[in-house]
C-alpha cells in the first residue's frame, strides 16, 4: 500500500507502469514539438528527413527561420513589453495589497478582501469582454462630453496590459501576503523604538525581508502575462502578442517555424521557472 508496508509484486509493478504512462502522457506533446522543430521537412510531421536548423536560422525565401521571421519576432517583442509592464505594475500594486490586508485595519476590510480574490474565479474571457465594454463606454463618454478621443481606451497594447494586470495582481498579492505572514514584527518594533518612522521601517526592513518573494512574484507575473490568451483575445489591437499570433497561425495550418518558437518557449519558460525555484530554495535555507 505505502512504502513502509509490504507490497505485492503485482501492485507495485502495475502502479509503476501507471506512473510511467502518466509521465509519457505529460511529456509526449512537448517532446514531439521540440523534436520536429529540427526535422528537415516543410510539415511539422514525421517521417524524419534529417536534422536541420533551417527553422531557426534560414533567411528564406523558401524557408524562413524564426530569427528572420519579422511577424513572429514582432509579436515576441510585444509579449516581452506587455509582460514587463504587467510584472512591474502588478508587483507594485500587489505589494500594496499585501501590506494593506496584512498590516492595516479598516472598515469593510473583509469585503474588500473578497473583492480582491474575485478575479481568480472570474473566467478570463469574461474579464476580457467586461474590460473591453467598459473602456468602450468610457471612451464614448469622454468623446461625447469633451470631444477628445483617447486611444488608450481602444483595444491595443495598454488595454492588454490593464486586462492582464487585473487578475495577475491578485496572485501577486497572495504570494507576497504569504511571505509577509512570516515576518517577525519585533524587528519593526525595534526599528520604531530606535526612531524610524513607518516608511523607513517598510523601506529598510520589511521590503528587504520580502525581496525574494517579490522577485518570485514578479517572475510568476511575467510568465502568466507572457502566455495569457483568454483575456488578451478580446483586448488585443493591431499589435498581437505571441500567443494570439501563434493561435492564428495554428488555426490556419502550421509550419515547423511554430515548432521552433515552441521549442524556444519551452526552454525559456522552464529555465525561468527552475531559476525561480532554485532562488526560492536557497533563500529559504
Amino acid at each position: 500500500m505505502i512504502r513502509t508496508l509490504p507490497q505485492s509484486r503485482g501492485y507495485s509493478i502495475s502502479f509503476k507502469i501507471y506512473i510511467i504512462l502518466f509521465f509519457i502522457f505529460l511529456f509526449a506533446p512537448l517532446l514531439i514539438t521540440c523534436v520536429l522543430a529540427f526535422n528537415d521537412s516543410i510539415f511539422p510531421a514525421l517521417p524524419w528527413k534529417g536534422y536541420t536548423l533551417d527553422w531557426f536560422f534560414s533567411e528564406g525565401p523558401e524557408r524562413i527561420g524564426i530569427f528572420h521571421d519579422q511577424i513572429n519576432l514582432a509579436s515576441i517583442w510585444v509579449s516581452f513589453k506587455t509582460a514587463f509592464f504587467v510584472a512591474l505594475l502588478s508587483t507594485v500594486v500587489g505589494t500594496c495589497g499585501a501590506f494593506l490586508f496584512e498590516q492595516e485595519t479598516f472598515r469593510f476590510k473583509q469585503l474588500l478582501y473578497f473583492l480582491m480574490l474575485a478575479p481568480l474565479v472570474i473566467p478570463g474571457v469574461i474579464l476580457g469582454i467586461s474590460i473591453l465594454l467598459f473602456s468602450n463606454t468610457l471612451g464614448l463618454f469622454v468623446e461625447g462630453r469633451f470631444g477628445v478621443d483617447i486611444s488608450l481606451l481602444r483595444p491595443g497594447f495598454w488595454l492588454v496590459v490593464l486586462g492582464q494586470f487585473s487578475f495577475i495582481t491578485t496572485l501577486v498579492t497572495l504570494i507576497v501576503s504569504a511571505q509577509l505572514k512570516k515576518f517577525d514584527y519585533s524587528l519593526e518594533e525595534a526599528a520604531m523604538n530606535l526612531g524610524a518612522n513607518r516608511f523607513q521601517v517598510i523601506f529598510h526592513i520589511t521590503l528587504r525581508f520580502l525581496k525574494p518573494a517579490l522577485l518570485g512574484a514578479m517572475a510568476v507575473a511575467f510568465l502568466m502575462s507572457f502566455e495569457n490568451f483568454n483575456t488578451t483575445l478580446f483586448l488585443v489591437g493591431s499589435d498581437a502578442t505571441l500567443p494570439i499570433n501563434l493561435y492564428l497561425q495554428v488555426r490556419d495550418g502550421s509550419t515547423p517555424v511554430i515548432n521552433a518558437i515552441s521549442f524556444l518557449l519551452i526552454i525559456g519558460t522552464s529555465s525561468l521557472a527552475l531559476l525561480n525555484l532554485v532562488v526560492q530554495r536557497d533563500r529559504s535555507k
Binding site: 514531439i32 520536429l36 490568451f229 502550421s254 518557449l265 519551452i266
Partner: peptide
C-alpha cells in the same frame, strides 16, 4: 509552465 497554446499544439501534431 509552458503556454497552453504550445501544449495544445503538441497534441495537434
Amino acid at each position: 509552465w509552458v503556454s497552453e497554446l504550445v501544449r495544445v499544439y503538441g497534441w495537434m501534431i
